[in-house]
Design a protein around this nucleic acid. Structure first.
Length: 578
DNA sequence: CTTTCTCTAAAGTGCACTGTGGCCAGTGC
């Protein structure tokens, strides 16, 4: 049994125990046990198999035995018995906003509701409103929450599919007849959410490749399987298509299937002006006076043939990239290698999983020169936010840590809550003792757009607020952005010299890429921040850089490309001079 | 179920918001 499966079992046990009204601390113990297993910095499955789990914080006698049983037998009797007490479809109800264990239990016991279909029927027939503890408003909220969930069906976050896509690419490359392999579509364009994955392979043996593809591990269902095209559903529900083309066709197919559709339409018009038609296989002459056909070996040759420089896939949304390419003023986009440091990271002091030392070591290992720590402030109680005393203590610890460093530096900061009225969770005296500060909204999400915008603007006007954290609070495919006026925020950021964060947690990717070009043009600086709660999460920087590229950002638009020296000088300046 | 200021028993994140039902309970952060 893998680590992920063990985590899943423990989390499901917690849900089941909640349904059974068990001791809340027992439930919490399973949840925290799951978290411990998830982030254990060693091979926990091997340790569990060897029954070598003594002394791990969060794993007591009961969890130790259960983990051992799972690692050795591949199942858990306790879990299976528990599961048998409830219908499997009941779990889906936990995904509906506003439903927790207590309400699900009532629905199950009183109305026999055991699935989303049951719930919908009961809402439509008005039975829910009659239940004790429920009312008409709850009933309509549930219908809305179900519709919300449905609208997200079949969509996947970029970060959630990246590893499976990369491993499919690796598998395809392993085949001796695969000359060139690529992923196209919205994944290649780094859209924050994708519907399906388009893979492309250049081969002289297409039927062999499609047969190989449908035989790969991790495939739940084969939708179709022909000589040059195959379509499958992966275990996670993601649809994945493979097209096999000749090596000569490959650059055309790569360009075509990478899209976007709008970008391709514009490109085909350019081709027509030269008397060529462009499709997924080739250029063809369509007019007598056409220019001679160009030789195309790579995708960039197609752009060059049309008189354009290569256009990076992230920009291909027909949002001005063709015009910009025509004028030869495409931006030179930021690359991950340009990053010198990162801000907005958490430690065990608030809700992070690694210590200051561990986070710093991991950042340095990645080749970064500096790391900004920004633990939560006291109002974020749920995240174990720091009060003034703990914060100042942490500032002291960071100073001591830095005294021992050579060429690497930790910046002391805070992710300070923006309170409902726009004031901050710490006074200016306290904030003045930090190297920098990220200000974020963590509560009262339901303010009107006007109130929310005013609230955030008030925070940005504070001279100690270096940057604004996750502007809209959105959780992709889970929670909508709260209402906020982006234009006004961007204008205010430009005026007050407040940096805006590009939070690169794949759940957030906030501020959205669609706004960055505008912000950039007004002189607003960006900070690409992983919001890392774990050393592993520094890899989120990769997604942040993709989104920054999608937002037309160059190296100089992003502050964490500054060298350590420049950063120290920059932070030391008064905000209005930055 | 785990931890500890324990040694057998007690304590273990707290607040805002929403909706319901009459000043409370469930959910989510």
């Amino acid at each position: 049994m893998s680590r992920e499966e063990m985590v899943k079992v423990l989390e499901e046990i917690a849900l089941l125990l909640e349904l059974k009204d068990e001791n809340p601390f027992k439930i919490k113990a399973y949840r925290s046990g799951a978290e411990t297993v998830r982030s254990f910095p060693d091979d926990i499955v091997a340790r569990a198999a060897a029954n070598d789990l003594k002394g791990i914080k969060g794993i007591g006698d009961a969890l130790r035995d259960k983990l051992h049983e799972m690692a050795t037998t591949g199942k858990l009797e306790f879990y299976e018995k528990l599961r048998a007490e409830f219908p499997a479809s009941l779990f889906d109800l936990f995904e509906i906003q506003g439903l927790g264990a207590k309400k699900i239990k009532v629905l199950h016991r009183e109305l026999g509701i055991a699935s989303l279909e049951d719930l919908r029927a009961a809402c439509v027939s008005g039975q829910i409103a009659g239940l004790a503890g429920f009312g008409a408003k709850t009933q309509s909220n549930l219908l809305e929450a179900m519709a919300h969930r449905e609208s997200f069906a079949g969509q996947f976050r970029l970060g959630a599919v990246a590893s499976v896509v990369e491993s499919l690419l690796d598998d395809l490359r392993d085949h001796p007849d695969a000359h060139r392999v690529a992923v196209c579509g919205s994944y290649r364009r780094a859209k924050e959410v994708v519907h399906d994955i388009d893979l492309l392979v250049a081969t002289s043996n297409p039927s062999e490749l499609t047969a190989y593809f449908v035989s790969l591990a991790g495939i739940q269902k084969v939708l179709m399987h022909g000589d040059t095209k195959a379509s499958v559903i992966l275990d996670n529900g993601l649809q994945c298509d493979l097209r096999a083309v000749t090596n000569k066709q490959f650059p055309f197919a790569l360009q075509y299937f990478s899209g976007s559709k709008e970008h391709n339409v514009a490109l085909r018009q350019l081709a027509l002006r030269r008397g060529w038609s462009l499709n997924e296989y080739d250029f063809t002459v369509v007019r007598d006076d056409a220019q001679a056909l160009p030789e195309v070996n790579e995708e960039k040759d197609i752009y060059h043939a049309l008189g354009l420089p290569f256009i990076e896939p992230e920009l291909r949304e027909n949002l001005g990239e063709i015009e910009s390419a025509t004028n030869h003023d495409l931006p030179r986009l930021i690359e991950i290698a340009n990053l010198r440091g990162t801000f907005h990271n958490h430690t065990t002091e608030s809700d992070g999983k690694n210590s200051l030392e561990e986070m710093a070591a991991a950042a340095e290992e990645l080749g970064l020169q500096y790391l900004g720590i920004a633990d939560h402030s006291k109002s974020s109680f749920q995240a174990n936010g720091l009060n003034e005393q703990r914060l100042l203590q942490q500032v002291q610890e960071i100073a001591e840590f830095n005294a021992k460093q050579q060429g690497f530096r930790v910046f002391a900061g805070s992710e300070v809550d923006i309170l409902k009225d726009g004031s901050l969770d710490f006074s200016n005296d306290i904030l003045a003792q930090l190297d920098y500060c990220v200000a974020s909204v963590h509560n009262a999400f339901t303010l009107s757009e006007e109130e929310m915008t005013r609230r955030i603007i008030r925070a940005m006007e504070n001279e100690h607020v270096t940057m604004l954290g996750h502007l809209t609070g959105r959780l992709l495919l889970k929670r909508d952005a709260y209402a906020v006026n982006h234009s006004k925020i961007i204008d205010c950021a430009a005026e007050t010299r407040t940096v805006i964060e590009l939070n690169c947690n794949p759940m957030r990717l906030d501020m959205d890429w669609r706004w960055w070009r505008r912000a950039r043009d007004r002189g607003v600086l960006c900070s690409i921040n992983p919001d890392a709660h774990h050393t592993e999460q520094f890899r989120f920087l990769h997604f942040g850089v993709l989104q920054a590229r999608k937002g037309w950002l160059r190296r100089d638009d992003v502050i964490n490309t500054f060298s350590l020296e420049k950063m120290q000088e920059w932070l030391a300046r008064p905000k209005h001079l930055r």
